[in-house]
Design a protein around this nucleic acid. Structure first.
Lengths: 255, 255
DNA sequence: ACATGCGTGCCGCTGAGCGGAACGACCCGC
DNA sequence: GCGGGTCGTTCCGCTCAGCGGCACGCATGT
C-alpha cells in the first residue's frame, strides 16, 4: 500500500539506462544537491546500487560533487542546450519573441507539447507582467494553458485523446475540466487561429497564444503573451501574436 | 595513426554509464539528428551495442526518434535547465545582465570555468554588438576570453597550472600564448578587479569582464560586456561591469 | 548486377552490474 | 555517556543483463 509516487520512467525495465534516467530525473526544481540515500529513496533503487551509479555518473560529469552530496553536472546543461538547438526553434523564435515583449511589455512564451503537458523552451519576462510560475524547461498541463490549447487544436486526434484520458486536472478555478467544453474551444481556435486563456492557468492572468505549424498544418510549438486580466486586452494583442506565429511557421518549417 | 578524436569521457571504463555519456556527447552543435551507425562511429562502440543503448535511451526519453535517426530528447533540456537552476546563478544574474545590455546596447555574458575552458550559462545579445561565436551552453578556451581570465585571476594556483599544462592554444592573432604574459595580466586583474580582452578571442572584438567571488574570494563565475573595438571604450564600461559583478557576488554567495 | 551503406533481429557467452551485509562516522534526545 | 537513527562507503559472491559477432532486408549509387 505504498504511494505509487516513484520516479520510474519505465517500471518494467531495470536496465542501467532506466536507472540513470531515474537518477537524473530525481532532481526537482527546488533542491540543490542531494545525498546518496535521498537519491535511493526517490528512485526506489537499493542504496548500494545508487552509490555505484552515482560514482560512475560523477566520473562522467553527469553529476558533480558538492561536499558529500551531488548535483546535476554542468555537462548536462551543455547537452540540454544542444537538445533544443537541434530543433532550431529557440534561435529562430528569439528575435520575434523579443519584439513581442518590447511591443507589449508583457511576458512571452515559447513552448512545445510533450505527452499531456507543455514544456517551455523560452520565457521572456516583461516589466509590467505578473510573476508567472512558468520556467524555462518547466512543465504545465496542456489543457490549462494558452500555448497548450493552441497546439492541441492543431494536433492529431489521438493526441487530444491522450490528454483527455489523463484527465483534465484543474489548476485554477476557471481551468477547463469538461472534455466537451475543451473540444468546443479547440474548434473555435481552429477557426480563428488564436487560443485564449482566461484565468484558466492562474487567477487574474490572461493570455493569447498562436501555434507554429509545419507544412502539413500540424502544430510543432506555440507562442503566447500573458498579462494581467485587467491591464491587457487579449483581443488587442491577438493580431500581433498571430502574425508572429505565422511568420515563424514559415521560417521554422524549412528545416 | 588515426586522429585520436574519439568521444570517450573515460577510455578505461566501458561501463554502461560511460557509454551513455559518450552517446550523449556525440551530438555536436551543428548536427540535427544522427543515425545509429554514425553514433557508433563517433563513440567507437560496436554498432549492435549502440543500437541497443539507443533503444533504451529512446524508451527513457533521453533520445527522440526523427525518422530513422535520433536526436537529443526534450527531457535532457529539462534536466539541463535544472543543472544551472540549482546553482541559482542564472536567475540571480539575469536582471543585472539585462541592465548591462540595456545600458550599453552590447552583448553580455555569464560564464563559469570547467577544466581549461569557460562554459557560457547565459548570453544576452545587444543590437549594436558583433555576431560573436559564444553560445549558451557553448565552450571557449579560458585564456582567450575576458570571462576566462577574470575567473583564472581569482582561482587556486593549480587551476592556472592545468590551463598552462593544456597549452595556450591561439584562437586569434592576439591570443595570449605566453605563460609569463598571462601570469602578468592575471596579477594586474587582481589589482584592478577587471579583466580586458583586446581582440584576443576574435578580430575587432574587445571585452571587459568581472569575476563573481564567493565568501573566500574565489571566483565562481564571471560576467562580461563585448563590443566592437572601434565603437566601445572598455575603460568606460568597466565600472558598470565591476559594480554589477560586486553586487552579484554578494547576492549569489549567500546560498 | 554489384557494392556499400543503412537499421534491425538473433543468440550464446561472460563479466559487469547487482545488492545484502557490514563498517565507521556523525548527530541527536534520553 | 549511550543507544538509536542516518549518513556515506566498502566488501564480495552470485547471476543475469549487457554484450557483440553474425546475418538479413532494404535503400542507395555505381
Amino acid at each position: 500500500m505504498r504511494a505509487a509516487e516513484r520516479n520510474d520512467p519505465q517500471e518494467s525495465s531495470p536496465s542501467t539506462t532506466a536507472r540513470i534516467t531515474a537518477l537524473l530525473t530525481a532532481f526537482r526544481p527546488g533542491d540543490d544537491a542531494l545525498g546518496v540515500s535521498e537519491l535511493a529513496r526517490r528512485t526506489g533503487l537499493p542504496k548500494t546500487s545508487t552509490h555505484r551509479l552515482v560514482r560512475h555518473m560523477l566520473a562522467n560529469g553527469l553529476l558533480e560533487r558538492d561536499g558529500e552530496a551531488v548535483r546535476l553536472g554542468l555537462r548536462l546543461f551543455e547537452i540540454g542546450q544542444l537538445a533544443t538547438r537541434q530543433r532550431g526553434l529557440v534561435d529562430a523564435a528569439r528575435p520575434h519573441l523579443a519584439d513581442l515583449r518590447e511591443a507589449t511589455h508583457n511576458t512571452v512564451h515559447l513552448a512545445v507539447l510533450e505527452g499531456t503537458e507543455v514544456v517551455y523552451l523560452d520565457v521572456l519576462r516583461g516589466p509590467d507582467a505578473p510573476r508567472l510560475p512558468s520556467r524555462i524547461g518547466g512543465r504545465f498541463p496542456a489543457h490549462a494553458t494558452g500555448v497548450g490549447k493552441a497546439i492541441l487544436a492543431y494536433s492529431a486526434a489521438n493526441v487530444l485523446d491522450t490528454v483527455l484520458a489523463a484527465g483534465l486536472r484543474p489548476v485554477s478555478k476557471k481551468t477547463i475540466t469538461s472534455p466537451a467544453v475543451l473540444r468546443n474551444q479547440l474548434a473555435r481556435i481552429r477557426d480563428s487561429g488564436i487560443a485564449y486563456d482566461r484565468e484558466e492557468s492562474g487567477v487574474g492572468v490572461v493570455c493569447a497564444a498562436g501555434p507554429l505549424l509545419d507544412g502539413a498544418g500540424r502544430a510543432v510549438a506555440a507562442i503566447s503573451i500573458s498579462g494581467w486580466s485587467n491591464r491587457m486586452r487579449t483581443d488587442r494583442i491577438a493580431p500581433a501574436v498571430r502574425t508572429a506565429a505565422l511568420t515563424l511557421s514559415r521560417t521554422v518549417t524549412l528545416r
